[in-house]
């Protein structure tokens, strides 16, 4: 028996919006600790990892580990039927071939019930090493979204150059070039507007904007985004940690006492000159 109740159903809507254009089919792994999902896009260029802690739900019951394979476009279509202020309840029986979604209106006078067929997915699960990255940039998520969108007008790739005092995003293409430079901000009253850089060494790497624009669809989930990178490892060395992680924390929107209840992490390798 699996049952998860989320008063802020809008969080699930935002999560689906953040992954459905990147990944078509994926499995939710449900355990007593929470729900998680890991999947690559169809071209296997990027990886997305979503985690929701059990204590982020208002009610969570998972008697035994379950894998719920589903088409995310179908799930997204059904989740869209929930109002933003609905409570969403996910239910699955043991060994069932479907899950039930219940949408409860705030005044509890209306309950909608939908079922989604589950799929048996032959998913490839990748082990992500727990590593530290040499460069970490925290910045407003809407600013990152804007930069990726604007630079897509100029070129296919963004070059991120990071030094202690600031970070520069640049693109070049047939029509010309463009760049945006963000300085590290002093401690401010509004932490959501701050730009924070922590680094061991300077870095300059290029990434495909097509994927970063997909990742930026997670913007409504979090006011800040974290970019974690490490400088290029010389050719022939294991490239193990040479990926960029774009991370959005998932918070409940409790104004008085907001807390992190999970995350979305996207992994992308840098573009390398041929």
């Amino acid at each position: 028996m699996f049952e998860a109740r989320l008063i802020q159903g809008s969080i699930l809507k935002k999560i689906l919006d953040a992954i459905k254009d990147l990944v078509t089919d994926a499995s939710w792994d449900c355990s007593p600790n929470g729900m998680s999902l890991q999947a690559m896009d169809t071209s296997h260029v990027s990886l997305v990892s979503v985690s929701l802690n059990s204590d982020g739900f208002d009610k969570y019951r998972c008697d035994r580990n379950l894998t719920l394979g589903m088409n995310l476009i179908s799930l997204s279509k059904i989740i869209k039927c929930a109002a933003n202020d609905d409570t969403i309840i996910i239910k699955a029986g043991d060994g069932g071939d479907k899950i039930t979604l219940l949408f409860e209106a705030q005044n509890e006078s209306e309950v909608a019930e939908y079922e989604i067929k589950l799929m048996n997915l032959d998913s490839e699960y990748l082990g992500i090493p727990d590593t530290t990255y040499n460069v970490t940039i925290k910045m407003p998520s809407n600013k990152f979204q804007r930069i990726c969108r604007d630079l897509s007008q100029i070129g296919d790739a963004v070059t991120i150059s990071c030094a202690k005092d600031g970070v520069r995003f640049g693109a070049a293409g047939d029509l010309g070039s463009g760049s945006i430079r963000l300085a590290q901000t002093a401690t401010s009253d509004k932490p959501e507007d701050s730009v924070t850089i922590s680094m061991q060494e300077a870095l300059c790497q290029s990434f495909a904007l097509k994927y970063l624009n997909h990742f930026a669809k997670a913007t409504p989930l979090s006011a800040q985004v974290t970019l974690s990178m490490s400088p290029d490892v010389p050719l022939g060395e294991p490239l193990l940690f040479n990926v960029c992680v774009v991370e959005y924390n998932i918070s409940d929107n409790d104004d008085e006492n907001p807390s992190t209840i999970g995350f979305i992490r996207y992994y992308l390798a840098p573009k390398i000159d041929d």
């Binding site: 260029v45 990748l126 992500i128 090493p129 490239l239 040479n242 992994y267 390798a269 840098p270 573009k271």
Partner: peptide, 14 residues
């Protein structure tokens, strides 16, 4: 010309 590496070449299959 830039090439894009696949992400599964970075992480180990479990």
């Amino acid at each position: 010309k830039c090439s894009q590496t696949r992400i599964d070449s970075f992480f180990k299959m479990m």
